[in-house]
Design a protein around this nucleic acid. Sequence first.
DNA 1: GGTTAGCACTCTTCATTTGAGAGTGCCAAC
DNA 2: GTTGGCACTCTCAAATGAAGAGTGCTAACC
Lengths: 368, 368
Amino acid sequence: MPNKNLTEREKGILSLVVKAYIDDAAPVGSRALVRRFDLELSPATIRNTMNDLEDAGLLEQPHTSAGRIPTDLGYRVYVDELMSPVELSPGEQAAIRDVLVDEGRGYIRDAATILDQTVRALGDLTHLLAVSLEPRLGKGIFEKIELVEMGGPKILAVLTIAKGFIRTLVLELDALVDSESLHETAQLINERLSGLPMRAIRESVRERMRDATAGDPKVLKLILSNSEDLFAPSAEEGSIHYWGTPHILALPEFADTERMVSLMGALEEKDVFLRILGQKRGEKGLTITIGEENQEGEIQFCSIVASPYTAREGSGTIGVLGPTRMEYSKLVSIVDYTARIMSEVLARVVHTPDQSKARTGIKKVRSE
Amino acid sequence: MPNKNLTEREKGILSLVVKAYIDDAAPVGSRALVRRFDLELSPATIRNTMNDLEDAGLLEQPHTSAGRIPTDLGYRVYVDELMSPVELSPGEQAAIRDVLVDEGRGYIRDAATILDQTVRALGDLTHLLAVSLEPRLGKGIFEKIELVEMGGPKILAVLTIAKGFIRTLVLELDALVDSESLHETAQLINERLSGLPMRAIRESVRERMRDATAGDPKVLKLILSNSEDLFAPSAEEGSIHYWGTPHILALPEFADTERMVSLMGALEEKDVFLRILGQKRGEKGLTITIGEENQEGEIQFCSIVASPYTAREGSGTIGVLGPTRMEYSKLVSIVDYTARIMSEVLARVVHTPDQSKARTGIKKVRSE
DNA sequence: GGTTAGCACTCTTCATTTGAGAGTGCCAAC
DNA sequence: GTTGGCACTCTCAAATGAAGAGTGCTAACC
């Protein structure tokens, strides 16, 4: 917890310095600050205060006799104690809402599509990099399995999990099985496992399916040997969506090739973002991570404003990444609003592993 | 077709200039060329020849009294007439083969996973941006449909197309239907449509399904009103994979922010690459597109070496993108080899719309 | 005629210089 | 506690100049 013993004046100056630096990306000096905000004080006084703030570790100078820029700690104090969230304009709200809400669209998109579209809107609205993590099945309850013959020795297993999540997996047998036995086998599995949590199934399928009386033994064996994957806890753990690399790459902060490469590498590699966003999924509300507060070295020159969202029984994360010099006060509102609306929308949506666009979305049709 | 009337000497010099420039990314001068390649001729002679090549439009000077760099046309002549493909070292071959070939892996990955892994290997091997387009169903033959009840009013339609391709789509009804009628409806559809090309079905489902005697009329109506999507020609037209942005962003060619932004924008937007790669899918063999030969303005400072690959009845594209200054002679071999192996591997794989990693891949299991 | 040496000229690059501008720290005075 | 004044520092941009690389051209050479 940062020093709270700041005078009112110090708080004010820190705020102004942060604001000015966010706008200009250039060190801000005492004289410039006075002129810019029509301060009643003289530059000299400001200088004294700035000096105190520097001693407190909230500001720093790139070199002697340059202006000051906020340190990570400075931003932290600003974010925690000084700024107040900016209300969104109706236009901004609409920009987000229109993308997310699907009224009049004629079909329900699946979660992946929604995330994709949302992340685009968010990235373009903030002019930063928007990132999101797909919802994970929380405590998934297994509903049922269907086995569909696919021609040749291949079988498509379709699992229905919790309310509305489905998972498909193609299994390959080395012998042909007629669809009758497939159906019987599926039925047997459903009788014994339906309603159980996925975890429980993973741990005890073999015992539960012992002494099978019906169904095809080969198929059953196939299912059992793949139970780790079939009944895995999370559906799409690995899926992140992002949008806006051109926005941030154009910022002066990323003129340095090394930073650029390290960020893009992290994005492509995905691991880094999985860790960061996955961690935030645990948090209760909106999170702000500033610069070196980040665990991941690749992006310690960046800040992230992120918020968890919920989708049925799963939950994910959506957020915005940019240089530490970012408009926290506005981004907080935008990200918070987005996550909120997203939770609303996703509450009504089925989660499928299908990744393609509207074409393979979920069509909502009036059957007249 | 570029001028063929080049003397042997001119061809030689052009080759050397291209090679030197590919290595150094700096304009190459006559004296430097002589020193570098231990030429028997004097710089003055080289100068004369270079002058001729400049007149022919194959070389250009960034400014008077700098060295020369190849023009797009210069590269074209080099590629078409002068270079010879470099054979791959066993190590390089192995690097590609190991990723693609799945022996000993224990499971068959789906097409998306294979593309993902291949593109990674290709990008890292070439130190450029590797891109690929997922295979498209060629002349798809509809095999059958299965309708799976999903809880609530939702139905999962599973289509089996051609040999081994499947497509899933979630449909939503506004009434509950028991699985018996679902099964009957599916059976009816299969009886009437199985074996027909997707195109034919799209055009004439309604007539073909007229006077339905069995099945649930509501479900049938739902299927009909979604036939455009269900029987759409291509499964995953929209999917491109890429890897290697950090590689190319680090190149001097991309120090210019504008180029960087325009390339990254095109990558995120996907449209540009869909057009480029989709077009190449039509071509017979490996294609080299140099600089402004590109139709798409966003990447007219880049070259692409790409090759189509085949997967069952579908076909896709895989290739490498980089600055026009790239090692064509080597890339040709690498891309060609990759596409070849990929076609081999994909011939044995089922294509599913499932995007996640190994977890939801296709498990190959000995049922014994 | 092709090839080459020589030479004047051009242009970039880099280091250096210089002046202006912005900013600081400190001191003394208010 | 606040401020004006002042010496000092540092960056930035423009200007300068020398070095280096390269060119084109001409005249001579084989």
